[in-house]
Write a protein that binds this DNA or RNA. Structure first.
Lengths: 241, 241
DNA sequence: TAGTGGTCTAGACCACTCC
DNA sequence: GAGTGGTCTAGACCACTAA
């Protein structure tokens, strides 16, 4: 049965699956060096060319990256690929304008029902809520509402723990929780009273809303995040072919 | 380190350039069959494996597609890749809800200065303007404002010419103008009075704004389009790794 | 049946990195 | 110098398409 099924799956696909399994089950974590082409070829009983093809495919899918002379590594998630990079912070000349974030709320509290469920909790469970405001040159430009699984990041509700702009660096370094991937959904809305006040814009101004689901290994969702930003500073560009 | 060693360009890159040149200069047009691997290998004096690698790269970039047993073709632009496919037309169960468009204005008129310039005209030139309203089940959901180069589509201002939902089909078939690619930019705004009226929504409701630049061969821009749609029906999803 | 792309192998040589 | 990935070749065999 199994033999019949496998007969139609190309060898390079099996090599891809082998590597992806090692990643998904934590035997390889982001940043790790994977075995070299000859090693994998020997291990899996295929030619080096087949291994090369499998790795090339995974590189194209952004799952691996290679350095000539060094080796092949498991990709680290890159939040510069977030849709939020399409906010232009008023700097017409070039990119790279820094956005600074400040925590405005941080506490354990009962999460909304749908967020509890998405994070794998019973409704009305206590979650870690962090609210931050993002600034460019003192100008508030976005509000972040983050909901974390509290036992994934124990103690992060304490004022003693400094939260860097890129929160995920803290999660990886302090709690050793690898952030593996995220899903983002973009919509638009108009500012409610509280958002308008925090952003210093008129109520009912257009805002961009970005919902992010952040995942660790084994497809475990560890954070729900809703970011609301000024629409007048946002534009997302794509090419169609 | 010798920075002048850039002279060496890999053979497969040259094969890619050869094919892309043939496309850009119109010797190959979308839908055309390109020469087979052995033919290209012979023509360019490289091995078939090198041609294969070049073609694989172009397939990954969506410039070509292949059919086993048939051959390799130049990609046709696919407007299903438009960002507008992320409008969900109120149908929760599945996709594929049809959007029907009706022309509400069609005339030659002086274009806005920036649009004239982008289309390669002097300011205050006459352009072909077409306005359409998009419906799902009688419910207006978006407004399209299209500006065309008039001599690219002569006579399209006439009421006699039927404009199909996918306008580009007409342009390709009737005027033999290949549509090669398009660029889209997404932003959000609030509905002005006219838009609100046409869409049947309150003034100042949130709307999604999509600007599209459409190009023919030789990088010639042939259309400027601005589409304004109800934000409450739009969501764009992406994955970060 | 001839021609196309799809998979797979074996091996050569080069460029880069680290020791 | 040893090990890594990057390029390139030659050739085998298979799967699909069309005449």
């Amino acid at each position: 049965m199994n033999q019949f099924d496998n007969r139609h799956i190309p060898l390079y696909k099996r090599v891809e699956s082998h590597i992806l399994n090692d990643i998904d089950e934590g035997r390889l974590i982001p940043g790790d060096l994977i075995p070299s082409e000859p090693q994998l070829a020997l291990l899996l009983g295929v030619s080096q060319g087949t291994v090369k093809k499998a790795i090339e495919n995974l590189v194209n899918e952004n799952r691996l990256y290679r350095h000539q002379g060094k080796g092949t590594y498991v990709s680290t998630i890159n939040f510069n690929n977030s849709l939020f990079r399409f906010f232009s912070y008023g700097d017409a000349s070039g990119k790279g304008v820094r956005i600074h974030k400040e925590v405005s709320e941080r506490e354990l509290k009962i999460g909304p029902k749908n967020i509890c469920q998405q994070l794998g909790y019973e409704p009305n469970s206590e979650l870690l809520y962090i609210q931050r405001c993002g600034y460019v040159l003192e100008l508030p430009i976005l509000i972040e509402h983050c909901w974390w699984c509290p036992e994934v990041v124990p103690g992060m509700e304490s004022e003693d723990v400094h939260i860097p702009d890129l929160m995920y660096a803290l999660v990886v370094e302090k709690y050793a929780v690898p952030v593996v991937r995220a899903e983002e959904t973009l919509t638009a809305d108009i500012a409610d009273k509280q958002t308008a006040q925090l952003l210093g814009i008129p109520e009912k101004s257009p805002v961009i809303v970005l919902i992010r689901h952040t995942y660790s290994r084994h497809n475990k969702m560890i954070e729900y995040r809703k970011t609301v930003g000024r629409a007048d500073k946002f534009s997302y560009k794509a090419e169609i072919r």
